[in-house]
Amino acid sequence: MTVIEPDQRKSDGADKVSDVVLEQSVSRSAAPVDRAGALKRIALADRIFFQVTRAAAVIVLIILGGVIVSLVHGSLPSMKAFGFGFLTSQAWNPVLDNFGALPAVYGTMITSLIAMLIAVPVGLGVATFLTELCPHALRRPIGVAIELLAGIPSIIYGIWGLFVFAPFVQTHVQPALISAFADVPVLSAMFAGPPYGIGMLTAGFILAIMVLPFIASISRDVFETVPPVLKEAATGIGCTTWEMMRFVVLPYTRVGVIGGVMLGLGRALGETMAVTFVIGNAHKISPSLLAPGTTISATIANEFTEAVGDIYTSALIQLGLILFVITFIVLAIARYMLMRIERNAA
Protein backbone atom coordinates (compact mmCIF):
# COMPACT_ATOMS: atom_id res chain seq x y z
CA MET A 1 0.00 0.00 0.00
CA THR A 2 2.61 2.47 1.05
CA VAL A 3 5.62 1.41 -0.96
CA ILE A 4 5.18 1.33 -4.65
CA GLU A 5 7.50 -1.18 -6.20
CA PRO A 6 9.24 -0.18 -9.37
CA ASP A 7 7.75 -3.05 -11.27
CA GLN A 8 4.23 -2.14 -10.37
CA ARG A 9 4.74 1.51 -11.12
CA LYS A 10 5.96 0.65 -14.54
CA SER A 11 3.00 -1.50 -15.31
CA ASP A 12 0.68 1.15 -13.91
CA GLY A 13 2.12 3.59 -16.31
CA ALA A 14 1.88 1.12 -19.13
CA ASP A 15 -1.72 0.46 -18.19
CA LYS A 16 -2.53 4.07 -18.96
CA VAL A 17 -0.76 3.97 -22.26
CA SER A 18 -2.18 0.80 -23.67
CA ASP A 19 -3.87 -2.41 -22.55
CA VAL A 20 -2.27 -4.34 -25.30
CA VAL A 21 1.20 -3.49 -24.20
CA LEU A 22 0.39 -4.57 -20.66
CA GLU A 23 -0.98 -7.89 -21.73
CA GLN A 24 1.95 -8.54 -23.94
CA SER A 25 4.42 -7.80 -21.24
CA VAL A 26 2.61 -9.91 -18.67
CA SER A 27 2.24 -12.89 -20.92
CA ARG A 28 5.82 -12.62 -22.06
CA SER A 29 7.08 -12.65 -18.51
CA ALA A 30 4.73 -15.41 -17.33
CA ALA A 31 4.81 -17.65 -20.37
CA PRO A 32 7.88 -19.87 -20.00
CA VAL A 33 6.82 -21.31 -16.64
CA ASP A 34 2.98 -21.45 -16.93
CA ARG A 35 2.71 -22.55 -20.51
CA ALA A 36 4.36 -25.90 -20.02
CA GLY A 37 2.33 -26.55 -16.90
CA ALA A 38 -0.91 -25.54 -18.54
CA LEU A 39 -0.18 -27.65 -21.57
CA LYS A 40 0.54 -30.63 -19.37
CA ARG A 41 -2.67 -30.11 -17.47
CA ILE A 42 -4.65 -29.76 -20.65
CA ALA A 43 -3.05 -32.83 -22.18
CA LEU A 44 -3.84 -34.77 -19.03
CA ALA A 45 -7.46 -33.60 -19.01
CA ASP A 46 -7.66 -34.51 -22.67
CA ARG A 47 -6.41 -38.02 -22.05
CA ILE A 48 -8.71 -38.47 -19.07
CA PHE A 49 -11.75 -37.33 -21.04
CA PHE A 50 -10.86 -39.67 -23.88
CA GLN A 51 -10.37 -42.60 -21.56
CA VAL A 52 -13.62 -41.86 -19.73
CA THR A 53 -15.65 -41.80 -22.93
CA ARG A 54 -13.96 -44.99 -24.14
CA ALA A 55 -14.62 -46.66 -20.82
CA ALA A 56 -18.28 -45.71 -21.12
CA ALA A 57 -18.45 -47.34 -24.54
CA VAL A 58 -16.82 -50.47 -23.17
CA ILE A 59 -19.20 -50.53 -20.21
CA VAL A 60 -22.20 -50.42 -22.54
CA LEU A 61 -20.70 -53.39 -24.35
CA ILE A 62 -20.11 -55.27 -21.11
CA ILE A 63 -23.69 -54.66 -20.01
CA LEU A 64 -25.13 -56.40 -23.04
CA GLY A 65 -22.65 -59.21 -22.70
CA GLY A 66 -23.79 -59.34 -19.09
CA VAL A 67 -27.41 -59.70 -20.13
CA ILE A 68 -26.62 -62.78 -22.20
CA VAL A 69 -24.23 -64.31 -19.66
CA SER A 70 -26.61 -63.79 -16.76
CA LEU A 71 -29.55 -65.25 -18.67
CA VAL A 72 -27.53 -68.29 -19.67
CA HIS A 73 -26.24 -68.67 -16.14
CA GLY A 74 -29.72 -68.28 -14.67
CA SER A 75 -31.19 -70.91 -16.95
CA LEU A 76 -28.48 -73.53 -16.35
CA PRO A 77 -30.48 -75.48 -13.73
CA SER A 78 -33.44 -75.69 -16.08
CA MET A 79 -31.22 -76.66 -19.01
CA LYS A 80 -29.70 -79.47 -16.93
CA ALA A 81 -33.10 -80.68 -15.80
CA PHE A 82 -34.91 -80.67 -19.14
CA GLY A 83 -32.28 -80.49 -21.87
CA PHE A 84 -33.58 -79.90 -25.37
CA GLY A 85 -36.92 -81.41 -24.34
CA PHE A 86 -37.68 -78.01 -22.79
CA LEU A 87 -38.30 -76.61 -26.26
CA THR A 88 -40.73 -79.33 -27.29
CA SER A 89 -42.51 -80.12 -24.03
CA GLN A 90 -46.02 -78.87 -23.39
CA ALA A 91 -45.88 -79.49 -19.66
CA TRP A 92 -46.15 -76.64 -17.21
CA ASN A 93 -46.50 -78.04 -13.76
CA PRO A 94 -45.07 -75.99 -10.89
CA VAL A 95 -46.07 -78.64 -8.35
CA LEU A 96 -44.05 -81.42 -9.98
CA ASP A 97 -41.38 -79.01 -11.25
CA ASN A 98 -41.95 -80.09 -14.81
CA PHE A 99 -41.76 -77.34 -17.41
CA GLY A 100 -41.79 -76.95 -21.18
CA ALA A 101 -41.55 -73.89 -23.39
CA LEU A 102 -43.68 -74.99 -26.32
CA PRO A 103 -47.04 -73.41 -25.39
CA ALA A 104 -45.41 -70.06 -24.61
CA VAL A 105 -43.29 -70.08 -27.77
CA TYR A 106 -46.33 -71.11 -29.81
CA GLY A 107 -48.43 -68.33 -28.27
CA THR A 108 -45.70 -65.76 -28.92
CA MET A 109 -45.45 -66.80 -32.58
CA ILE A 110 -49.19 -66.93 -33.20
CA THR A 111 -50.04 -63.60 -31.56
CA SER A 112 -47.19 -61.89 -33.40
CA LEU A 113 -48.30 -63.50 -36.65
CA ILE A 114 -51.87 -62.24 -36.21
CA ALA A 115 -50.52 -58.81 -35.32
CA MET A 116 -48.33 -58.69 -38.42
CA LEU A 117 -51.11 -59.92 -40.72
CA ILE A 118 -53.19 -56.93 -39.63
CA ALA A 119 -50.60 -54.26 -38.94
CA VAL A 120 -48.44 -54.65 -42.07
CA PRO A 121 -51.14 -54.04 -44.72
CA VAL A 122 -52.80 -51.32 -42.67
CA GLY A 123 -49.46 -49.73 -41.81
CA LEU A 124 -48.35 -49.72 -45.44
CA GLY A 125 -51.75 -48.28 -46.36
CA VAL A 126 -51.33 -45.48 -43.85
CA ALA A 127 -47.80 -44.80 -45.14
CA THR A 128 -49.05 -44.71 -48.75
CA PHE A 129 -51.84 -42.40 -47.68
CA LEU A 130 -49.41 -40.08 -45.93
CA THR A 131 -46.92 -39.87 -48.80
CA GLU A 132 -49.25 -39.86 -51.80
CA LEU A 133 -52.90 -39.23 -51.05
CA CYS A 134 -53.18 -37.03 -47.99
CA PRO A 135 -53.90 -33.32 -48.55
CA HIS A 136 -50.67 -31.42 -47.95
CA ALA A 137 -51.99 -29.40 -45.04
CA LEU A 138 -52.79 -32.58 -43.09
CA ARG A 139 -49.58 -34.50 -43.81
CA ARG A 140 -47.47 -33.08 -41.03
CA PRO A 141 -50.13 -33.15 -38.28
CA ILE A 142 -51.16 -36.73 -39.04
CA GLY A 143 -47.55 -37.85 -39.38
CA VAL A 144 -46.64 -36.25 -36.06
CA ALA A 145 -49.72 -37.75 -34.38
CA ILE A 146 -48.73 -41.23 -35.53
CA GLU A 147 -45.16 -40.77 -34.34
CA LEU A 148 -46.45 -39.63 -30.94
CA LEU A 149 -48.74 -42.65 -30.71
CA ALA A 150 -45.77 -44.91 -31.37
CA GLY A 151 -44.30 -43.66 -28.10
CA ILE A 152 -47.31 -44.36 -25.89
CA PRO A 153 -46.48 -46.97 -23.23
CA SER A 154 -47.79 -50.42 -24.01
CA ILE A 155 -49.64 -50.72 -20.70
CA ILE A 156 -52.12 -48.16 -22.04
CA TYR A 157 -52.96 -50.49 -24.92
CA GLY A 158 -53.22 -53.32 -22.41
CA ILE A 159 -55.70 -51.61 -20.11
CA TRP A 160 -57.79 -50.48 -23.08
CA GLY A 161 -57.74 -54.01 -24.42
CA LEU A 162 -58.88 -55.44 -21.11
CA PHE A 163 -61.71 -53.03 -20.34
CA VAL A 164 -62.95 -51.86 -23.73
CA PHE A 165 -61.79 -54.14 -26.50
CA ALA A 166 -62.11 -57.61 -24.93
CA PRO A 167 -65.78 -57.13 -23.89
CA PHE A 168 -66.51 -55.82 -27.39
CA VAL A 169 -64.83 -58.83 -28.99
CA GLN A 170 -66.67 -61.17 -26.63
CA THR A 171 -70.13 -59.81 -27.39
CA HIS A 172 -69.79 -58.86 -31.06
CA VAL A 173 -66.82 -60.34 -32.89
CA GLN A 174 -66.37 -63.83 -31.48
CA PRO A 175 -70.02 -65.02 -31.66
CA ALA A 176 -70.11 -63.83 -35.25
CA LEU A 177 -66.86 -65.64 -36.09
CA ILE A 178 -67.99 -68.84 -34.39
CA SER A 179 -71.31 -68.97 -36.19
CA ALA A 180 -69.88 -67.83 -39.53
CA PHE A 181 -67.24 -70.58 -39.68
CA ALA A 182 -69.22 -73.30 -37.87
CA ASP A 183 -69.60 -75.39 -41.04
CA VAL A 184 -66.23 -74.73 -42.68
CA PRO A 185 -63.87 -77.69 -42.03
CA VAL A 186 -60.59 -76.11 -40.91
CA LEU A 187 -61.83 -72.69 -39.88
CA SER A 188 -64.43 -74.16 -37.53
CA ALA A 189 -61.60 -75.59 -35.44
CA MET A 190 -59.69 -72.31 -35.56
CA PHE A 191 -62.69 -70.35 -34.36
CA ALA A 192 -64.22 -72.79 -31.93
CA GLY A 193 -65.23 -72.68 -28.33
CA PRO A 194 -67.02 -70.30 -26.04
CA PRO A 195 -66.38 -66.58 -26.61
CA TYR A 196 -64.21 -65.67 -23.61
CA GLY A 197 -63.27 -62.26 -24.94
CA ILE A 198 -59.67 -62.73 -23.86
CA GLY A 199 -57.49 -65.10 -25.84
CA MET A 200 -54.95 -65.38 -28.63
CA LEU A 201 -57.01 -63.52 -31.21
CA THR A 202 -57.69 -60.54 -28.93
CA ALA A 203 -54.02 -60.41 -27.93
CA GLY A 204 -53.06 -60.43 -31.61
CA PHE A 205 -55.45 -57.55 -32.32
CA ILE A 206 -54.07 -55.48 -29.45
CA LEU A 207 -50.50 -56.13 -30.61
CA ALA A 208 -51.53 -55.08 -34.11
CA ILE A 209 -52.91 -51.79 -32.83
CA MET A 210 -49.75 -51.26 -30.82
CA VAL A 211 -47.23 -51.85 -33.62
CA LEU A 212 -49.36 -50.11 -36.25
CA PRO A 213 -48.08 -46.56 -35.58
CA PHE A 214 -44.57 -47.96 -35.48
CA ILE A 215 -44.74 -49.69 -38.86
CA ALA A 216 -46.63 -46.79 -40.40
CA SER A 217 -44.10 -44.16 -39.39
CA ILE A 218 -41.06 -46.23 -40.43
CA SER A 219 -42.58 -47.11 -43.81
CA ARG A 220 -43.44 -43.47 -44.35
CA ASP A 221 -39.83 -42.47 -43.61
CA VAL A 222 -38.63 -45.17 -45.99
CA PHE A 223 -41.07 -44.15 -48.73
CA GLU A 224 -39.78 -40.61 -48.43
CA THR A 225 -36.27 -41.74 -49.38
CA VAL A 226 -37.48 -42.41 -52.93
CA PRO A 227 -36.02 -39.65 -55.14
CA PRO A 228 -38.84 -37.46 -56.48
CA VAL A 229 -37.32 -37.85 -59.97
CA LEU A 230 -38.24 -41.54 -60.02
CA LYS A 231 -41.82 -40.87 -59.03
CA GLU A 232 -42.11 -38.01 -61.50
CA ALA A 233 -40.76 -40.23 -64.24
CA ALA A 234 -43.38 -42.84 -63.42
CA THR A 235 -46.20 -40.31 -63.50
CA GLY A 236 -44.65 -38.85 -66.62
CA ILE A 237 -45.08 -42.04 -68.59
CA GLY A 238 -48.68 -42.21 -67.41
CA CYS A 239 -48.58 -44.51 -64.40
CA THR A 240 -51.47 -44.35 -62.00
CA THR A 241 -50.75 -43.79 -58.31
CA TRP A 242 -51.14 -47.51 -57.67
CA GLU A 243 -48.79 -48.46 -60.49
CA MET A 244 -46.24 -45.95 -59.23
CA MET A 245 -46.40 -47.42 -55.71
CA ARG A 246 -46.35 -50.98 -56.96
CA PHE A 247 -43.64 -50.77 -59.62
CA VAL A 248 -41.46 -47.86 -58.50
CA VAL A 249 -41.76 -47.02 -54.82
CA LEU A 250 -42.12 -50.53 -53.38
CA PRO A 251 -39.26 -52.11 -55.38
CA TYR A 252 -37.02 -49.18 -54.52
CA THR A 253 -37.81 -49.34 -50.80
CA ARG A 254 -38.30 -53.09 -50.47
CA VAL A 255 -35.33 -53.67 -48.19
CA GLY A 256 -36.26 -50.78 -45.93
CA VAL A 257 -39.89 -51.79 -45.67
CA ILE A 258 -38.90 -55.33 -44.72
CA GLY A 259 -36.51 -53.88 -42.15
CA GLY A 260 -39.28 -51.76 -40.67
CA VAL A 261 -41.65 -54.72 -40.56
CA MET A 262 -39.00 -56.85 -38.84
CA LEU A 263 -38.48 -54.08 -36.30
CA GLY A 264 -42.22 -54.09 -35.63
CA LEU A 265 -42.12 -57.87 -35.37
CA GLY A 266 -39.32 -57.58 -32.83
CA ARG A 267 -41.53 -55.34 -30.77
CA ALA A 268 -44.54 -57.60 -31.05
CA LEU A 269 -42.54 -60.68 -30.04
CA GLY A 270 -41.14 -59.09 -26.92
CA GLU A 271 -44.18 -57.07 -25.93
CA THR A 272 -45.28 -57.81 -22.40
CA MET A 273 -47.91 -55.53 -20.96
CA ALA A 274 -50.24 -55.16 -23.93
CA VAL A 275 -50.47 -58.95 -24.13
CA THR A 276 -50.51 -60.01 -20.49
CA PHE A 277 -53.85 -58.29 -19.87
CA VAL A 278 -55.76 -60.11 -22.59
CA ILE A 279 -54.03 -63.44 -23.28
CA GLY A 280 -55.59 -65.46 -20.46
CA ASN A 281 -52.39 -67.15 -19.27
CA ALA A 282 -53.25 -70.76 -20.06
CA HIS A 283 -50.34 -73.13 -20.64
CA LYS A 284 -51.81 -75.21 -23.39
CA ILE A 285 -51.80 -75.28 -27.14
CA SER A 286 -55.30 -75.04 -28.46
CA PRO A 287 -56.22 -75.20 -32.14
CA SER A 288 -58.79 -72.45 -31.57
CA LEU A 289 -57.59 -68.87 -31.82
CA LEU A 290 -60.35 -67.82 -29.46
CA ALA A 291 -59.00 -69.93 -26.62
CA PRO A 292 -56.81 -68.39 -23.95
CA GLY A 293 -53.11 -69.08 -24.32
CA THR A 294 -49.90 -67.53 -23.16
CA THR A 295 -46.77 -65.92 -24.51
CA ILE A 296 -43.22 -66.00 -23.24
CA SER A 297 -43.33 -62.48 -21.88
CA ALA A 298 -46.80 -62.88 -20.36
CA THR A 299 -45.71 -66.06 -18.58
CA ILE A 300 -42.67 -64.34 -17.11
CA ALA A 301 -44.67 -61.25 -16.08
CA ASN A 302 -47.43 -63.29 -14.46
CA GLU A 303 -45.43 -65.94 -12.69
CA PHE A 304 -41.93 -64.73 -11.96
CA THR A 305 -42.60 -63.06 -8.61
CA GLU A 306 -44.62 -66.04 -7.46
CA ALA A 307 -42.18 -68.68 -8.64
CA VAL A 308 -40.91 -70.81 -5.77
CA GLY A 309 -37.96 -73.14 -6.14
CA ASP A 310 -34.88 -72.91 -8.29
CA ILE A 311 -36.16 -74.99 -11.17
CA TYR A 312 -39.31 -72.90 -11.59
CA THR A 313 -37.36 -69.61 -11.54
CA SER A 314 -34.72 -71.06 -13.82
CA ALA A 315 -37.33 -72.30 -16.30
CA LEU A 316 -38.77 -68.77 -16.48
CA ILE A 317 -35.31 -67.30 -17.01
CA GLN A 318 -34.71 -69.82 -19.78
CA LEU A 319 -37.95 -68.66 -21.40
CA GLY A 320 -36.51 -65.14 -21.23
CA LEU A 321 -33.33 -66.39 -22.89
CA ILE A 322 -35.33 -67.99 -25.71
CA LEU A 323 -37.24 -64.75 -26.20
CA PHE A 324 -34.03 -62.77 -26.24
CA VAL A 325 -32.44 -65.04 -28.83
CA ILE A 326 -35.53 -64.89 -31.08
CA THR A 327 -35.80 -61.10 -30.91
CA PHE A 328 -32.03 -60.72 -31.29
CA ILE A 329 -32.13 -62.58 -34.59
CA VAL A 330 -35.18 -60.68 -35.85
CA LEU A 331 -33.79 -57.30 -34.80
CA ALA A 332 -30.35 -58.02 -36.24
CA ILE A 333 -31.94 -58.78 -39.62
CA ALA A 334 -34.06 -55.63 -39.33
CA ARG A 335 -31.06 -53.41 -38.54
CA TYR A 336 -29.05 -54.91 -41.36
CA MET A 337 -31.81 -54.19 -43.87
CA LEU A 338 -32.47 -50.66 -42.61
CA MET A 339 -28.73 -50.01 -42.75
CA ARG A 340 -28.69 -51.01 -46.39
CA ILE A 341 -31.43 -48.55 -47.29
CA GLU A 342 -29.70 -45.80 -45.33
CA ARG A 343 -26.56 -46.43 -47.34
CA ASN A 344 -28.62 -46.24 -50.53
CA ALA A 345 -30.15 -42.94 -49.47
CA ALA A 346 -26.76 -41.42 -48.67
Binding site: G66, V67, S70, L71, G74, L263, G266, R267, L269, G270, E271, T272, S297, I300, A301, F304, L316, I317, G320, L323, F324, T327, F328, L331
Partner: peptide
Protein backbone atom coordinates in the same frame (compact mmCIF):
# COMPACT_ATOMS: atom_id res chain seq x y z
CA UNK B 1 -32.88 -50.16 -28.16
CA UNK B 2 -35.72 -52.44 -29.12
CA UNK B 3 -34.95 -55.53 -27.06
CA UNK B 4 -37.83 -56.77 -24.91
CA UNK B 5 -37.76 -54.80 -21.69
CA UNK B 6 -38.85 -57.80 -19.65
CA UNK B 7 -35.51 -59.43 -20.44
CA UNK B 8 -33.79 -56.42 -18.90
CA UNK B 9 -35.94 -57.04 -15.81
CA UNK B 10 -34.75 -60.64 -15.68
CA UNK B 11 -31.14 -59.51 -16.02
Amino acid sequence: LSAPSIVIGLF
